[in-house]
Write a protein that binds this DNA or RNA. Structure first.
Lengths: 337, 337
DNA sequence: GCTATCACTTTAAACGATTAAAGCAAATGA
DNA sequence: TCATTTGCTTTAATCGTTTAAAGTGATAGC
């Protein structure tokens, strides 16, 4: 791979490297390069198919025009949606996105963040995983610009963009109640993550505000390591109560999909036997025999705001932004009317 | 963001930069660095939290230890699966993956490839889009190591890893025939892409080999720009023939999902009214009331082979590999028995 | 005729790493 | 005693850019 550098163009035209650099960076006028040379240089660059070496440029400029993105799991629909939005927004500002997936693993997360930093990304957009507080604090100490999305740690002050999870869960629960349910189960991961706990809180608050006495059997904690098994057990449990639940609200799409598979297996009909509502979106929700009512997150908006906030941080320093977004309840046919 | 460089460590310990570099690159022994200094240097690096600047390293070494990946659309299940596999395999060899999605757009594709090259990736793994032949030829001329996956251009000799699409389509069609269908429709995108045309060819060959006379109405070409509309029209068409089709075989998951949505809408029952079979996988396939029989692509294997081939290309030059993989037919309940 | 200005162009020092090659004591050999 | 070897360390060039600063020849001003 023969490389064409500024030097080659300079030699070809018979001028110095500096002149070539000026011209190709659009500084021809302010550096008063003669039209003749400017012309020749541009022609030569074209002819030789010159491609600037961004590595060298970055080294000199201390700017890579790259932002690092770490999502929790590339297989989540959330991840692909947000990635797309972020890439699009970054592109507008002429930034490239370097991308990685932590697979919800805290070591992988730390590793990825380090790789990205070593590559001198100008900033990071992160979906932090459980127990990654130390990494986050490290970033703050190192003064590396970053913004968290989707999740955040209330005990650390950071710039973050996330859903108002409390409100979303509250709204959805209230909707179920309005539809006439009064024994509503909530399935969530057993987790220390704030954003998921907020969903618990919203669910509980909605029950309380509507004078429904919460039964502890309704709130089922799923261990992500044993997701399928736990969900089956949990579903069995809420369906076999003396007063079985008449609705189940899943805190994430992954939970819902696993849950629906099991409901299919035991031939429980949605919504005749039980109503179903879920956070997030999934292609599968639409195609289920009774399309699943769900909470759609504003991925586009989240991605845009994340990039904008990060760029602000990179370019104008020190800002503090905590943005809370709203979800939209998409009514399907999975809840009794 | 105060940066710690070799210089800082050198000053801190009171030695030269070279010595620091030797020690931190594990050359302490062969360069006979005194144990004392080696010790001090390592300690200082730790203390100061030194992170090597990969940009500078890359510039000097002419190696970025990065591979670029361009997928067709991050929203495809294929893309997330292959991305995951590639990242995992690349990581084993200590390579980072720089990633982009062309959204099936030829300009975006060209742009992404250029961005990646400018960043001096050591090589590329590409899912080429329609009409990207010129880009591919350009890469060859520039002697940039790359491997194509999923798709390839028969008129250009390249290293590529792809499914044996002919065989896969043939197998699936033969399966439908064996299940007793004899009016099988095939839905494919209207495209010039070889891998999809191969699917047509496999379908047609299977019909022929089983003495089924092909009717041109059965092969429906969907325009991707008007996917939903075209699919509806195509389904209406094959269901309203004098002799309606009894099975429909979708050439991709995206076609199938759209098709199933419409079948739901018109309340056509699968497989009672029509059997369904599809290429690719989707979460939705499992959750459909009769899980869709489909062709699973070996994403893991494809990703692994792609990375391995690329690294071989990068490290040992000039090889020529065309790898053909087999898909697996996953039997669901969407075909009559 | 001498300096100033103008219109350009080149020189050369970075950026942060790698790594031949050279340097320099102390130890060894003759 | 002087040359050589050994053991360790430093010097300095280099990668491909950017960009102050200095250089240069022509023209203008007085």
């Amino acid at each position: 791979m023969k490389k064409v550098g500024l030097k080659d163009i300079a030699e070809h035209v018979g001028v110095s490297i500096a002149l070539v650099s000026y011209v190709l960076n659009g500084q021809a006028e302010i550096k008063q390069v003669s039209k003749e040379n400017a012309q020749k240089i541009k022609a030569a660059a074209e002819l030789l198919n010159y491609r600037p070496n961004q590595i060298a440029k970055s080294l000199k400029m201390h700017k890579t025009h790259t932002i690092g993105l770490v999502v929790a799991d590339i297989n989540y629909r959330f991840s692909t949606g947000i990635t797309r939005a972020i890439e699009a927004e970054a592109k507008k500002a002429n930034y490239t996105v370097l991308f990685g997936s932590s697979n919800e693993n805290e070591n992988t997360f730390a590793e990825l963040v380090n790789v990205l930093i070593n590559r001198q990304v100008d900033g990071l957009i992160l979906v932090p995983v459980e127990n990654s507080q130390d990494q986050i604090k490290m970033l703050q100490k190192a003064e590396i610009p970053f913004v968290l999305i989707d999740r955040n740690f209330p005990e650390i002050t950071t710039n973050h963009i996330a859903l108002d999870n409390y409100k979303a869960a509250y709204t959805a629960t209230a909707y179920l109640i309005k539809q006439g349910h009064n024994r509503i189960a909530f399935f969530n991961y057993a987790t220390t993550m704030f954003h998921l706990q907020e969903r618990d809180r919203g669910y509980l608050a909605a029950l309380k505000d509507h004078d429904i006495v919460f039964k502890s059997d309704w709130l089922q904690q799923i261990n992500s390591a044993n997701r399928a098994g736990d969900i089956q057990q949990a579903l069995d449990s809420i369906l076999n109560l003396k007063e079985p639940c008449d609705a189940v609200f899943f805190a994430t799409d992954t939970l819902a999909i696993n849950g629906l598979k099991y409901l299919n297996k035991i031939k429980a009909k949605v919504p005749q036997d039980i109503s179903v509502l879920s956070f997030d979106e999934s292609e599968a929700f639409e195609l289920f025999y009774s399309p699943i009512t769900h909470l759609r997150q504003p991925l586009e908006e989240m991605g845009q705001k994340a990039v904008d906030t990060l760029l602000e941080l990179i370019n104008y320093n020190k800002i503090s932004k905590q943005i809370s977004l709203s979800s939209e309840l998409i009514i399907g046919q999975s809840c009794k009317e």
